[in-house]
């Protein structure tokens, strides 16, 4: 035990209410790190997927086919309407029944999509639905005339989208996107409902095992998410400032 661990061990002995068990018990430390890692993975992967869904979805919404646009609208309405908690449960419990299983050892039946997989799918689609709307509004903010100028220079629809519309749309959408992604990181906690071992889940299980660690666990949880959201907000603001177009201040 090093000095750091010793300090918290002694603290727990003297003040049983402040048992920072995850600072001196390597097993609990590992649980916290695992939980933090899972939350980070969930956040980062869902942020990436949801942004991809948003960009592609907004592109699809501009399609000529009415059926495609209607399908997209249906997707957005469903995911924006229903609470993410119910979505998670719906994906995992209701759709999970139909996923094929495989058998690694001939005895066990393991579904090919785990609960983590369902959480990623469900949360990405949830935040993605908002992103589609955000990007669509951003694209609508790019004047026709600017796109026409690109067309007159010989660009095709895809080139105009990639080189002109998206870079401009992205800039106006950043504040809204920022809000939505913060919301997404906060919503990853709800993956608890389908037993995804993320930070909240791990902290609650530590507390369940060692009731004296209650205060320490709550403190850690509270500040962990504030820091996590803070980092995201800070990064997005930096990015926003970096993307600002000189001469066009808002």
């Amino acid at each position: 035990m090093n000095a750091f661990q010793q300090y918290f061990f002694d603290l727990a002995q003297q003040h049983p209410k402040w048992n920072f068990i995850y600072f001196y018990d390597p097993v609990q430390t590992e649980r916290v790190i695992d939980g933090l890692w899972m939350t980070l993975q969930l956040s980062v992967i869902c942020v990436i997927f949801s942004v991809i869904i948003g960009v592609v979805g907004a592109w699809v919404q501009g399609a000529h086919s009415k059926t495609v646009r209607l399908l997209m609208q249906g997707y957005i309405q469903f995911f924006r309407n229903t609470p993410p908690l119910v979505q998670l449960m719906f994906f995992y419990f209701a759709l999970g029944q139909f996923t094929p299983t495989y058998s690694p050892d001939g005895w066990l039946e393991v579904p090919i999509i785990s609960n983590v997989g369902w959480a990623i799918i469900s949360l990405s689609f949830f935040a993605g639905a908002f992103n589609v709307e955000i990007f669509r509004a951003g694209i609508e903010a790019v004047p026709e005339s600017t796109q026409e100028a690109a067309e007159a220079l010989g660009m095709n629809r895809l080139q105009i989208y990639i080189y002109v519309v998206l870079p401009l749309a992205f800039r106006v959408t950043l504040p809204a996107l920022n809000n939505n992604l913060v919301n997404l990181v906060k919503t990853t906690t709800q993956a608890l409902a389908i037993a995804v071992p993320e930070l909240l889940y791990q902290m609650i299980s530590i507390y369940n095992d060692y009731s004296t660690a209650q205060n320490a666990c709550m403190l850690f949880l509270f500040f962990a998410y504030i820091v996590l959201v803070g980092i995201l907000v800070f990064g997005m603001h930096r990015w926003e400032r970096g993307m600002r177009i000189p001469g066009y201040g808002q």
Partner: peptide
Amino acid sequence: LKPFNYSP
């Protein structure tokens, strides 16, 4: 840019 009509 035209007005951005979205706020989450």
